[in-house]
Design a protein around this nucleic acid. Structure first.
Lengths: 330, 330
DNA sequence: AATATTTGCGTAAACGATTACATAAATTTT
DNA sequence: AAAATTTATGTAATCGTTTACGCAAATATT
């Protein structure tokens, strides 16, 4: 593979001049420019990005850590991240952590080793201490999931409010027995969505009953399983709010298997507005997050830190939207 | 950020010795080892991967180019790739090309610029010439989609045979009017799947009728749309083979909207066995590809090239499986 | 026309690692 | 005990760039 030296030699100039041509700097005579361009073309020369990044101590690359590339929710966010990154001359590289702390740390190591200028973390498994330490070394942003009280910017929605609105919608339809399918994990969104659920009940004067709360792992299967249990209660809930669309779809299938009609016998509301929520029958009432915008904002915030335009940690809350479909209203 | 020089200074040794410690080379006295380790810990030192890769002209990194991270089909493949990569000391970085040639080329540029030691391409948009040229410079593997006659290894399934089996299944159920929903694009799998469809018809003595063939873009919407047209034909097809699950699901929804029952009035078969094909009602008959194994094999083949254990281009065809569910048989 | 500025280009020092080679000290072999 | 080998370490070149600095030639300013 040709190097800048080969080009310089072929063009009969110094490497500095070649570098000037590559980087479009001024002060290169038209004839020299032509000669160098010619040599570059002939040798099919491509600057070695390692050498460049090493010299500039800047790689123009961003790492995006996400727990699961199979989750279409992240795909749309990534699109936003990518568009803003490209517009600003950065490339992004996706790293699938599989929600595995070890894998995540492997990628963080690469980050610390100057392979990238910064990172966007979605649903990081790291502790407060690890995150704080990391943020001291490298520009990072938390996207969607985040930990509070850290000196790290984050971009997300108001999960408590979103859940509150969703449950309020169910209550507004006349439901008094509203169940909840959540998740027991370290993520703030799980807690906040449950809090929103409870607040909506309280405000409507409905007693909060822990028996009406089940917990899964966001998956179709877990929704199916938890719903089975909830339906065995007496009195049976007439509505259920799930913190993921997959669990909601599992819940609906579970209810159907018991011979119940959705929404006539039981209304179901999801969260995420995944692509399938439109295709499923009945179509799913759900909370939509502005995925693309979340990604854009996260990337913009990151670039601001990298290019030292901002130093204060910022906390962005984007607008969400309750999308009412057949699973709650016929 | 501390460099190897800082460590050397702090430990009172030369950089060479520090490098020896980092790389676990022999011939370092226990005391020196201790001193250096201490200094590394105190300074929280991490080798700069750029410097290392530059010097070694090897990055221990692999690029995986995929057209769409939102497609869960690729997620499972990526898992296989990742597992094998990690086991061999490589890290992978995902690049989302969005089926956009320009984006793809941007990543290829990074690849050519020594940012990675090789790449796995899924559904590349590049031409024969571009691919051939690239393969001459950098180790690459084609995964799933591939072009024939290139000196580049590929890993995929026998698409013609898979389609043949699926259509044969429909014919075996007694269907004579079997329609086809495919795609008109540059991908070999599209052509091969159609060929398999035609072969199955021919062998069963059924006349191939182009009017029974519609074309979409793998999406739910296109399946829905194309199915509408096919259903307006007289005589109406009684079965349809789709080259993607999403189109199959769209087709089913389309049929249902026309008041038809699946599979009683019309049988539908998909391709891919995406996660949702189990959740959808009726559950979907489809062709399953060994995604994880495809990924593993692709990565193993790539490592063989990188580490120069093999030089001949290899052509791997993995086993597929027809999964019969409710959308064809009640 | 003398002086000041700009232009165009080259030299060489970084960036942060690895490693061939050299060398002195320690150990083993004869 | 001398010679040969091994061990432990350092020096300096190298990977492929960018860029500060220097300098001559060309151009502008007075």
């Amino acid at each position: 593979m040709a190097t800048i030296n080969d080009v310089a030699e072929k063009a009969g100039v110094s490497v500095a001049t070649v570098s000037r041509v590559i980087n479009g700097s001024a002060n290169v005579s038209p004839e020299t420019l032509e000669k160098v361009k010619q040599a570059i073309a002939e040798l099919n020369y491509r600057p070695n990005l390692l050498g460049r990044a090493l010299r500039k101590t800047k790689s123009e690359r961003i790492l995006v850590l996400l727990p699961n590339i199979a989750n279409p929710f992240y795909a749309e966010i990534v699109k936003g991240i990518e568009d803003v990154a490209n517009k600003n001359g950065y490339s992004i590289m996706l790293c699938n952590t599989d929600s595995d702390l070890e894998r995540e740390k492997k990628y963080i190591k690469m980050l610390k080793s100057h392979l990238a200028d910064g990172a966007i973390l979605m649903a990081s498994e790291m502790t407060y201490e690890e995150l704080t330490e990391l943020a001291g070394e490298i520009p990072i942003i938390q996207c969607c999931e985040y930990k509070v009280g850290l000196p790290i910017s984050h971009v997300s929605i108001d999960n408590e409010m979103a859940a509150y609105k969703a449950v309020n919608h169910l209550i507004g339809l006349g439901h008094k027995k509203v169940a909840f399918i959540g998740a027991k994990n370290q993520f703030l969104s799980s807690t906040l969505r449950k809090e929103g659920y409870i607040r909506a009940l309280k405000e409507a004067g409905i007693n909060y009953d822990p028996a009406y709360c089940g917990y899964g792992d966001y998956s179709y299967k877990s929704g199916f399983r938890v719903m089975k249990q909830l339906l065995s209660l007496d009195p049976r809930p007439t509505a259920v709010f799930c913190i993921s669309d997959l669990m909601a779809i599992g819940a609906i299938r579970s209810a159907m298997e018991e011979g119940l009609r959705v929404p006539e016998d039981i209304a179901v509301c999801g969260f995420d507005n995944i692509y399938f929520s439109r295709m499923f029958k009945p179509t799913l009432t759900t909370v939509s997050q502005p995925m693309y915008d979340l990604g854009c904002t996260a990337m913009e915030a990151l670039i601001n830190i990298i290019e030292e335009k901002s130093t204060e940690p910022m906390h962005y809350f984007m607008e969400h939207e309750l999308i009412i479909r057949e699973s709650t209203v016929k």
